[in-house]
Design a protein around this nucleic acid. Structure first.
Lengths: 156, 156
DNA sequence: ATACAATATGAATAAAATTCGTATTTAAAG
DNA sequence: CTTTAAATACGAATTTTATTCATATTGTAT
């Protein structure tokens, strides 16, 4: 799927995604055109899904995080998409075990949170909800560990 | 803090973070140098925290997500950093209520997950853990809603 | 070994980033 | 409602980067 050079490129991009191609090429010791071609293919294959800007949520009145355990009657796509449609909802995960979803929210304050919760409760199929408000986020990353992939070669 | 033009720029960047500056300038109808200056200041002020590449976790043997409710004896920074130090741990949130943390994990499979859990259980201060394995992730975004900020002007 | 496909190179060109002097706008103070 | 100072925008010039493509090299299967 990908070799050590690809991993190296991905490591550089994970560190700082807006780094110029030419700089990546310098760091991996290859021609810029070759690196460009590799990145293109990583994008084509869906290994690179995209590039994101990380904004400071506190600057946009989104300082409060919460997790909501939503117990449901079955696990319809209906409920899932109703939850996903709420703007404050950042994540919706269907979990194993008793039917339900784990929802991650982001709101300005407790008042807004309460409003969103009142919005979730009456959704058809929702049996109960349990809310956990986040006091402090110690770690929050999406970085993928690439260290274990150094040995992979490019087999079809 | 920021005006409508900043919001417009941030919306464009949230859509596609690796878009060239010159293209952003075209879309907002300003000179590239002016847009560059604005983006710089957004970065300086910590409004833009950084740029990330989004990788497909499944391509790196990280296809399994799980949430772990860690009940603890108090909420030491000790426990938090011990949890955060584990590579598979993507998020550590201290939650309101009974002392504890909500931890988000990413592993290759159930076997690896079990191993990580056995690693968490004996940490000093950990009373009990409850694990929720993710079957399906319906939504997962970090996008900040900027639509409400159109009226903001630039006051100190 | 041979041939085919994939990848790398390097030069050339187009595009973008960056800098900076000047002009314009904005906001505060008088 | 001016005046003034600071912030921002502009646009030309320059440097750097992106992109393309013909050629060379490498890797792989037969």
């Amino acid at each position: 799927m990908f070799d050590e050079i690809d991993i190296h490129i991905l490591e550089i991009l994970q560190e700082k995604a807006r780094i110029p191609n030419a700089e990546v090429a310098r760091q991996v010791g290859m021609a810029p055109s070759a690196v460009l071609e590799r990145i293109r293919k990583l994008e084509e294959r869906g290994i690179i899904e995209g590039y994101e800007v990380r904004l400071n949520p506190a600057c946009f009145h989104q300082g409060l995080s919460a997790f909501v355990q939503v117990e449901t009657d079955g696990t319809d796509a209906q409920i899932a998409s109703a939850l996903a449609a709420i703007t404050s909802v950042q994540e919706v995960h269907q979990v194993v075990g008793p039917d339900g979803f784990l929802v991650k929210l982001r709101t300005a304050d407790h008042t807004t949170l309460a409003r969103i919760l009142q919005q979730i409760r009456p959704l058809p199929g929702v049996k109960s909800i349990r809310t956990q408000v986040v006091l402090d986020t110690v770690k929050e990353t999406r970085r993928v560990d690439l260290t274990e992939h150094n040995g992979n070669s490019r087999h079809s």
